[in-house]
Structures are given as C-alpha cells and as structure tokens.
Simulated scan of single mutants.
Amino acid sequence: MWNSYPQRGNMQLLENFLSPIDAHIILGRMLSEGIYAVVIDEDIIWNNYMCSQALGGVKLLVHQADIERAKSILRQIEDNKFMLDNPEPNLENAKSSTFQCCSNSLMNTFLVILLFLTIGIALPLKTNFHSSP
C-alpha cells in the first residue's frame, strides 16, 4: 500500500505516532532540515481517533537515503536539543511578581463573590499574570 505512488517507492518508515499533530510537528522539522518526508494514514486517524493505536497510528515516511540523518534528528528532538533557550529568572522579580499575582487573584476572587452576593451573577474578572516590571 505504501508503494502505490511512484514518489513513495523508496520511502521507509521512520516513526508511528498516535496523533496526527505530533506527526506533523516532526514532519515540519524534517522538511526544515531538508529531508523529504511524508505523513500517511492521517485521514483515517482523524476520522476514527479512538482506534489510532489499533490501526497503527499515523506513519511518517522518509526517503531511504536520508533515514539515518532523520533518525539522528528524531533522537535530538527526544533529547530536547531543539528547545528554545529560556533566560534565567531573576529571583527578586519572581518573588514580587508571585506576591502580586496572589494578591491580584485574591482580590479578583473577593470581587467575584461580592458581585455574586449583591447581583446574583458571577462575572469572571480578567487577570494579568504576566505583568512587565
């Protein structure tokens, strides 16, 4: 079945995924590295998501010439080599922002309860947890 199209003649299975979303994330990485890859059986899984494991999941096929390189990229992804760098948090700002976050949350909870007791309607209030210093 995999070789029914001429362009899939030299393709080899790299990985099975239970979710088509996961398969497309890895597909995007492979294509950005210059490796020709194809996702197959995703339509079957989208239509019958609960049977994903029974059907073998979504398959990511890679050209035979690039299979070793694709496996090394997949290992690097599993080892979190492609994660974005997060700057080290400043502890002084973290303590003050945590206190401010908790006090804002407490004040909003109090206002929601007060509005519910006076009007009879609970209105959720928007909070801004990520305020800039």
Rank of each mutant, 00 (worst) to 15 (best):
L55E: 13
A54F: 07
N80D: 09
D79M: 14
D85M: 14
E15V: 04
Q7W: 05
N3P: 04
A65W: 10
A37N: 05
Y36F: 06
A70F: 02
V112F: 03
S105A: 13
S19Y: 00
Y5I: 05
K81W: 12
G34W: 03
C51Q: 12
R69I: 10
Q12D: 04
L114Y: 10
E68S: 15
E78L: 14
Y36L: 06
Y5D: 11
P20H: 02
A23Y: 01
D22S: 06
E68D: 15
I21H: 03
S32A: 08
T109V: 04
Y36C: 05
N93D: 06
L106S: 09
R29Q: 02
L106P: 02
A94G: 10
E68A: 15
V38N: 10
D85G: 14
T127A: 06
N47I: 08
F17G: 01
L84D: 12
S4Y: 02
M83Q: 14
W46K: 12
S72C: 13
S131V: 11
S132L: 11
E42W: 01
N16T: 00
L114I: 04
D85W: 04
I35K: 09
M11A: 11
S97R: 12
F129R: 05
S96D: 15
L125N: 02
E78Y: 14
K71R: 15
P89G: 07
P89D: 07
W46P: 06
V38W: 05
V38F: 08
